[in-house]
Design a protein around this nucleic acid. Structure first.
Length: 263
DNA sequence: AAAAGATGCAACCGCCGAGTG
DNA sequence: CCACTCGGCGGTTGCATCTTT
């Protein structure tokens, strides 16, 4: 903690001249770089609180921060946004990461959607530090791309997605908007899009253990039913109270604690 | 105790796609 | 159609801290 503050001050007076880089239409702008100071954090938080997220280039110009819009967005998303979890990734979250990475690969932002409170950056870092090493040790399996069957499914899913988009049946924009507002309220975001439902089915078919082990609904009907029964409200409240291992395929569902429900 | 290596993580970079004029 | 800006994403880097030797 202390070292972070020290590092921040280390860069305090450092102004790096940046030409036409990144965002912003300012021809030559001396954006500050390096670690954020508490004052900058405060400025950014206050600005976003009163003006909302988005329009990051305006944030950069109007908030009084001498930071690029890109930098402001990153800081907000990865550090200042309300509802972010700090602390270690739990074993359950780890299990989800493993399963979803097997399905989607390095789609960190997509994976992060299933772990509210965690950022793509955090998951990415976690994966790199915890699993990259293992991948090297277990080259044949880990470095392989997706299994042919899975790849085929994924391709099919992508095609379906595109067709739906073309037909205007998905209402994706609306879905995303809903998802965003739900995230803002730190509520479960499992079923924000039809894609997610399909993905869930894929996870269920390819990796049958995780949904069972995590006691997640496999089908949309399951989800709706669960919603009616108020079962999923705390689903993603994966507290550190969980101290059960998911390793070895996580073959026992009775060990898991899900947001207040002990299974 | 000191050096070396591993780990954690914030932040930057470059690229891409959507939107707009 | 083209050029440009913006927002977002994945990859990478840099550095402090922790752990091992």
């Amino acid at each position: 903690m202390c070292h972070r503050i020290w590092r921040q001050h280390k860069f305090e007076s450092e102004i790096i001249m940046v030409g036409l880089m990144g965002w912003g239409s300012v021809p030559v702008q001396g954006w500050r770089k390096g670690p954020w100071t508490p004052e900058e954090d405060k400025l950014l938080s206050e600005y976003v609180s009163s003006h909302g997220e988005g329009r990051w280039s305006s944030v950069a110009r109007c908030s009084g921060l001498n930071r690029s819009g890109k930098s402001c967005r990153l800081r907000w998303v990865n550090y200042l946004r309300p509802g972010l979890k700090r602390g270690h990734i739990t074993t359950m979250e780890e299990g989800i990461i493993i399963e979803l990475h097997a399905l989607w690969g390095n789609k960190w932002s997509t994976i992060a959607r299933y772990l509210p409170g965690r950022t793509d950056n955090e998951i990415k870092n976690y994966w790199r530090t915890h699993f990259k090493k293992n991948q090297k040790q277990q080259k044949p399996k880990a470095q392989q791309p997706l299994e042919p069957k899975l790849q085929q499914q994924q391709q099919q899913q992508q095609e379906d997605h595109e067709i739906k988009l073309e037909n205007g049946k998905m209402g994706e924009a609306q879905g995303k908007q809903e998802a965003i507002s739900m995230e803002d309220q730190c509520l479960p975001v499992m079923y924000q899009e039809i894609d997610d439902h399909q993905a869930r089915q894929q996870v269920a078919s390819m990796y049958p253990t995780i949904l069972e082990d995590l006691c997640l609904p496999v089908t949309y009907q399951d989800h709706l039913q669960g919603e009616d029964q108020g079962l999923w409200g705390g689903l993603w409240n994966l507290d550190d109270t969980i101290d059960h291992t998911i390793s070895g395929g996580g073959n026992s569902s009775q060990n898991y604690y899900n947001g207040g429900y002990i299974f």
